[in-house]
Simulated assay, not measured.
Amino acid sequence: MKILITGAAGKMATALAAQLRTQHEVVTPAESEMDITDFSVVQQQITAHRPDIVIHPAAWTDVDGCARDPLRAVQINGLGTQNIAVAAANAGAAILYISSNEVFDGLSDQLYFEYDATNPANPYGYSKWVGEQAVKSLNPRHYIVRTSWVFAHGGRNFIHAILDAAKAGKNLRVVTDEIANPTYNDDLVVALGQLIETGRYGIYHLTNEGAATRYDFARHALDAAGYADVPIEPIKLADWPRPSTPPPNAGLANMAGSMVGVMLRPWQEAVDAFLVKEGLHK
C-alpha cells in the first residue's frame, strides 16, 4: 500500500511513518511543500504521488490559540482538511483524518460512542468538526479517528510539565472535573496501522482504554516516576481560567474499533511504558 502522511514534522506523522514503513511505501511531503490551506498545492502533491490512502494528522493543535483566532482554526483544521479530502478523492485515494474528543461538548454523564451527536465545546473542537463534515461528505472511503490527550516522545507534554514542576518543588494544582482518555502516541500509531489494514471505513474512537481526570493522570505519572510524596492540590476548571474552555466530560468509548479487533492497552500501562522509554520510571 502506498501511504501519504501530512504534517511531516509532527510527532504523530513522524511516528506513523516509522511504524508504517516496515510494511508499506510511505511518502511524507515536507510542510514547506504541502501547505494544506492551498488547494492547488495539495492537489499537485497528492496527484503526483498517487497514494492509496492519505493519513491526515496535520492540524493547528494549539487549543488556546484556536480560541484567540477561530477563523484561522477553521481555515487550517476545517478547510485545510476539505482540501485534503477533495484531492484524495480526485486521486482515487482513501483518507484517514485525525479528529478530537473536543467535537463533543462534554456534558454527558457517560463515555461518548462513535455515532453520538456532536456539539463542539470550543473553537478548536468546532474546527475539527468542520473537518469531519468535509471528510464525510467529500470522500466516501474515509476513516475518521477521534483521540484525546495524546502524549508523545520528542517534546514537552502534560507528563513532562507535571514531572518538571515536581522536580522544581513547585506547588501542583490540577483539575478534577475535566475527563478524557490519556493516549500514548506510540500505541496510537500501531492502532492506526491496524485500522487501515481492515478496510472498514467509518468513525472510530482510538485512545488508550479507560477515562481519567487530569488529576488522575497527573497522580499516576507522579507515582510511577517516584514522586508519590508530592501532593497535588485538586482544583476545578473554573479555578484555571484560559482562552479555551475544554469539554468537562469528553471521555471516548472504543466500540467500533474493538469490533474489528483494534484496541489499545489501559492508559495507566501506557503511561508506565512512556516513562520507561523516557528513563523516568522508578
Score class of each variant (00 low, 15 high):
Ala225Arg: 04
Ala13Gln: 01
Gly193Ile: 08
Glu25Phe: 05
Ala225Gly: 10
Gln75Glu: 15
Leu206Thr: 05
Val190Cys: 09
Asp52Ser: 11
Asn181Gly: 08
Leu280Ala: 13
Pro243Ile: 05
Leu172Ser: 09
Ser127Pro: 01
Pro246His: 03
Leu252Arg: 06
Pro51Phe: 06
Val135Asn: 06
Ala211Asp: 07
Phe151Trp: 07
Asp64Tyr: 05
Met259Thr: 15
Phe274Thr: 10
His24Val: 01
Pro243Lys: 08
Thr28Gln: 10
His281Lys: 15
Pro57Glu: 02
Glu102Cys: 05
Gly10Thr: 07
Asn171Ser: 14
Ile144Arg: 07
Ser258Tyr: 10
Lys136Pro: 00
Pro123Leu: 10
Ala59Pro: 00
Pro243Ser: 08
Glu209Lys: 12
Val189Gly: 00
Glu114Gly: 02
Gln44Pro: 00
Val135Arg: 05
Glu132Asp: 12
Met34Val: 03
Phe158Ser: 13
Tyr115Val: 02
Asp216Ser: 11
Trp60Glu: 09
His220Phe: 14
Asp64Asn: 15
Ile162Met: 15
Gly92Arg: 09
Gly154Trp: 12
Gln268Ile: 13
Ala221His: 11
Val135Gln: 09
Val63Ile: 15
Ala8Thr: 04
His142Ser: 10
Ile203Leu: 11
Phe39His: 10
Val42Ser: 01
Ala88Ile: 05
Ala88Thr: 09
Ser99Gln: 03
Asp109Ala: 07
Asn101Leu: 00
Gly257Pro: 01
Ala91Phe: 06
Leu111Ala: 14
Val276Phe: 12
Arg72Leu: 15
Ala250Leu: 02
Ala88Tyr: 04
Leu172His: 10
Met255Arg: 15
Ile162Asn: 10
Ser32Glu: 13
Gln23Asp: 12
Val189Ala: 03
Ala85Tyr: 04
Val276Ile: 15
Pro120Val: 03
Arg219Pro: 05
Met259Gly: 00
His281Ser: 15
Ala180Val: 01
Val27Gly: 01
Ile196Val: 14
Glu233His: 06
Ile98Leu: 15
Ala165Phe: 04
Ile95Asn: 02
Asp187Asn: 14
Gln133Asn: 08
Thr61Ser: 14
Ala270His: 09
Pro140Leu: 07
Pro243Val: 05
Asp35Phe: 02
Pro120Glu: 03
Val103Gln: 02
Thr207Val: 14
Ile203Phe: 02
Glu233Asp: 12
Leu163Gly: 06
Tyr124Ala: 06
Ala9Asn: 12
His24Cys: 03
Val145Ser: 09
Arg141Ala: 14
Met12Glu: 05
Leu20Val: 00
